[in-house]
Amino acid sequence: MATVWVFGDDVDTDQIVPGRYAPYMKSESELGKFPFIEARPEFAREVQPGDVIVAGRNFGCGSSREYAPRALFIAGVGAIVAPSFARIFFRNALNLGLPLVQADLRGRVVDRQPVDLDLARPGLRVNGEWLALPAQPEWLRLAWAEGGIIQYYARHGRLPVEATS
């Protein structure tokens, strides 16, 4: 079963994937092993597809390095829930199809607790309790549904924002 990983405020991209572990420096095929490799090595070792990150404010601050969200995406992270995200990280995740949900679940979940994520409703079931997540704008759901803005653009020749405006 998927589990919750709890992080604090201001998780920076140097923590998520240090610059020394970029695909440019290592090899692309290793990227999925690198999220939080130094900041929280047990995450890099034990993260499972569908796991959910619950964090504090300003998740993903710092560098524009897309390999930070991509490492989390490749590792199979199902969603990141935080009260706010750094803007470049937000765009990168949206382009990749890694769902970011703006909500504050700190104090509602415990680190490494089993979790069921349902992005369609959307919400999380933790310890038998349903934690509702805010509904997302239509264009954002379109992007997620097609695996990110880039995939959406490749298929439709337009941006999701244009489909709903």
């Binding site: 710092g62 560098s63 524009s64 390095r65 897309e66 969200p69 470049i88 765009r91 990168n92 382009n95 990749l96 990110g148 803005i149 880039i150 653009y153």
Partner: peptide
């Protein structure tokens, strides 16, 4: 991310990731 530097000449400079740049 430090593309914000272009504001020194009154441009709207902003950082993006690789897929945003590709698009």
């Amino acid at each position: 991310s430090h593309a914000t530097a272009y504001g020194a000449v009154g441009a709207f400079g902003t950082g993006v990731g690789s897929r945003d740049m590709a698009l």
